[in-house]
Design a binder for these strands. Structure first.
Length: 486
RNA sequence: GGCCCCAUGGUCAAGCGGUUAAGACGGCGCCCUCUCACGGCGCAAUCAGGGGUUCGAGUCCCCUUGGGGUCACCA
C-alpha cells in the first residue's frame, strides 16, 4: 500500500510556519516511502474567503519545494481538490446517516445555542441534544414551516473512544464529553470536520498528519468513520510550535506561535532574507530530530532521513537565533554561482561592477547571515564623511592618531605607485611594515580606517581599497591625513 | 472549569533500566587576526518535586506542580 498524505490548508492568504511545518512533515512522510502528497483546499467557510489566497498557497509550496502530486492546479484521480467544488458530495453522506438513525436534523436557533452556553457554568458546556429525539411529526412540522436546520451526528452517550497515534501513542476519551457534532451547517455547507473525513476517505488518504490541537477532536472523526463503516487512517499528530514573547508586565510568556512573536508567516520570513530552504531546514528540526546529529539538510537529505519515530511530543519554541544560524550555513554551503545570483540584486543596488564579484564572494559569503545584510556591509563604498578621528586609536593594533598620521604620510605615495591589485596593495603595506619594524596592524589599521571611514568593514585594508577603487581610495586617505594633521 | 496531551541546560534536543547525561543554537573565555566575520579550542548551564517498582531510575508506575491544547453553524 502506498502512503497518501494530504495538506489541507484554508485559503486565508497567510501561511503560518506552523502550517508549513505540517505540510513539510506530510510531504516527508509520503516521500520517504515514495508515497503521494496531495494538496486539497478547504474553503467551506464562505465568510472567510480571501481573494487570491490560494495563490499564496501555491507560491509558498513552490518556493518551499513541497511539490504535490495531486491538487487543484494539476489534477489527479480523486478530484476535484477544492472543497467548494465538492459541495454536492457531502450532503448525501449526511442524509445517509439520518436515514440510518445515526444523525438528526437540529432546528435550534443560534440564539438558543448561545443562551445555552451563557447559562452553563463557565459558558463551557455544549449542546443539550434538544433535537436529538424529536418525533417524526415535529420534524415534519418544522420542515414544513421552513425552519432552517443543521445536521448533527448522534454521539454515544457513554463508553470510551480510543485510538492510537503514531506520535502520542494510545489516547482514550470519554464519549460523554463529545458534543453531537454538526455535519452540515444551516447554509448547506459541510463543517470542516465533516468535509475533512469525507474527503480523506474518498481521496484514499492513508496517513492523517496534523497539529496536536486535533488530538481531542480525533475521537469525533473516528466515530464518523465508524458510522460509515470506513477504516480509520493512521494518525500522526504533531507538537505545536510555540513563540516566546513578553507580556505587559515585562514577564516572559510562551504560547502558541502567533504574529505577536515576530514574523511567523513564511513569506514574511522570506522577505526578511531567510532562504526558503533554510526555513524548511529549521522547521524540520522543530519537533523532529534525526538519528544522528546532522543539523543542516537539503530537501533530499530530509526525505531520506525523516522518520516518524524521531518526532517529539512536547511543544517547541521557535528560535530566531537558530534560524539565523541555519540560514548562514545554507549561505556558506552555496556554490559561487548560487551565491552571486542571490547577491546580485543587492550588488546592483550598491552599484557594484562585475569585476568585484569574485572578491565580494570571498569576503561576504562567510560574513552574512542573510543576503539582506549586504547593503549595510557595503555602505562604506558609497558613503564617506568626516568620521570621528578617534577611530585611528586602536590599542590592540598599536595604532594611534600620531602613528596613523606618520604611516599614512609615507604610505600615500607608495600606494599610488604600487600595483593596484589585492596582492600588490597587501605587499606594499607588509613591506613597509617590515622595513620599518612595525607590526602589520600599525600600517593596515590606519589605511583601512582612512579608506573606509568606519570601524567595521568586511575584509581588510587591501580589500576595502580594491572595492573603492584607486582614485577614491587615495582621495579618502589624503583627506584623512589632512584632518589628522590639522 | 471539564476533558486530552506534555515535562532533560535559556532554546532545539540525544537518551528508550547500569552513560563522566551526547550534539547544536545562544552566552562567556582563549587562539587565529589590520576591524568584523569565518575557523579552531575551551567553559558555564538540564533530568520540575514527592512517593513507589528494582540490586540499580532521566528512563517504568502513581501523585503533586507546571505548561500546552480543546470544549463554534472556524478551520
Amino acid at each position: 500500500m502506498t502512503i497518501r498524505t494530504r495538506f489541507a490548508p484554508s485559503p486565508t492568504g497567510f501561511m503560518h510556519v506552523g502550517n508549513l511545518r505540517t505540510a513539510l512533515y506530510e510531504y516527508l512522510i509520503a516521500k520517504h516511502e515514495d508515497g503521494t502528497f496531495v494538496l486539497r483546499i478547504e474553503d467551506t467557510d464562505r465568510e472567510r474567503f480571501v481573494e487570491g489566497a490560494t495563490d499564496v498557497i501555491y507560491n509558498t509550496l513552490k518556493l518551499a519545494k513541497l511539490i504535490h502530486d495531486e491538487g487543484p492546479d494539476i489534477g489527479g484521480d480523486f478530484g476535484p481538490y477544492v472543497q467548494s467544488e465538492r459541495l454536492g458530495l457531502y450532503k448525501p453522506y449526511a442524509e445517509q446517516l439520518i436515514s440510518e438513525g445515526k444523525a438528526y436534523r437540529c432546528f435550534c436557533s443560534k440564539e438558543r445555542l448561545e443562551s445555552l452556553r451563557n447559562d452553563s457554568e463557565e459558558g463551557l458546556s455544549g449542546y443539550d441534544r434538544h433535537c436529538r429525539d424529536l418525533s417524526e411529526d415535529e420534524i415534519k412540522a418544522n420542515l414544513d414551516a421552513g425552519i432552517p436546520y443543521v445536521i448533527r451526528q448522534k454521539m454515544p452517550l457513554d463508553g470510551v473512544s480510543e485510538y492510537d497515534d503514531l506520535v502520542y501513542g494510545h489516547i482514550s476519551f470519554p464519549n460523554k464529553d463529545l458534543d453531537d457534532q454538526i455535519l452540515i451547517k444551516a447554509d448547506g455547507f459541510p463543517t470542516y470536520n465533516f468535509a475533512n473525513v469525507i474527503d480523506d476517505h474518498t481521496m484514499n488518504i492513508t496517513h492523517v498528519v496534523r497539529g496536536s490541537e486535533y488530538l481531542s477532536s480525533t475521537p469525533k472523526y473516528n466515530l464518523l468513520y465508524e458510522a460509515f463503516g470506513w477504516e480509520t487512517p493512521v494518525y500522526i499528530h504533531l507538537p505545536l510550535i510555540m513563540g516566546k514573547s513578553v507580556d505587559e508586565e515585562g514577564k516572559e510568556v510562551i504560547s502558541k506561535l502567533s504574529k505577536r512573536h515576530g514574523s511567523t508567516g513564511f513569506m514574511d520570513l522570506v522577505e526578511e532574507g531567510f532562504l526558503p530552504e533554510a526555513i524548511i531546514n529549521y522547521i524540520a528540526l522543530l519537533g523532529w530530530a534525526p538519528k544522528d546529529n546532522q543539523e543542516i539538510f537539503t530537501m533530499d537529505e530530509l526525505i531520506k532521513a525523516f522518520d516518524i519515530s524521531g518526532i517529539s511530543k512536547s511543544p517547541a519554541v521557535f528560535d530566531y537565533d537558530k534560524l539565523e544560524w541555519v540560514n548562514a550555513e545554507h549561505i556558506k554551503a552555496m556554490s559561487p554561482d548560487e551565491f552571486i545570483s542571490n547577491a546580485k540584486p543587492y550588488f546592483d543596488a550598491a552599484g557594484i561592477k562585475e569585476d568585484s564579484y569574485d572578491l565580494l564572494l570571498e569576503i561576504l559569503q562567510p560574513r552574512i547571515t542573510r543576503f539582506t545584510q549586504i547593503k549595510e556591509k557595503l555602505d562604506f563604498i558609497n558613503s564617506y564623511g568626516d568620521f570621528d578621528l578617534d577611530l585611528f586609536e586602536h590599542k590592540k593594533s598599536k595604532s594611534s592618531k600620531e602613528t596613523s598620521a606618520a604611516v599614512l604620510t609615507d604610505m600615500l605615495p607608495l600606494l599610488e605607485g604600487c600595483d593596484w591589485t589585492r596582492e600588490g596593495l597587501t605587499d606594499v603595506m607588509k613591506d613597509y611594515a617590515e622595513s620599518h619594524e612595525l607590526k602589520n596592524s600599525v600600517v593596515m589599521w590606519p589605511v583601512r580606517i582612512a579608506a573606509a571611514g568606519v570601524a567595521v568593514t568586511p575584509g581588510g585594508a587591501a580589500e576595502v581599497m580594491m572595492l573603492i577603487g584607486k582614485e577614491e581610495s587615495l582621495k579618502r586617505i589624503t583627506r584623512s591625513l589632512d584632518r589628522l594633521k590639522a
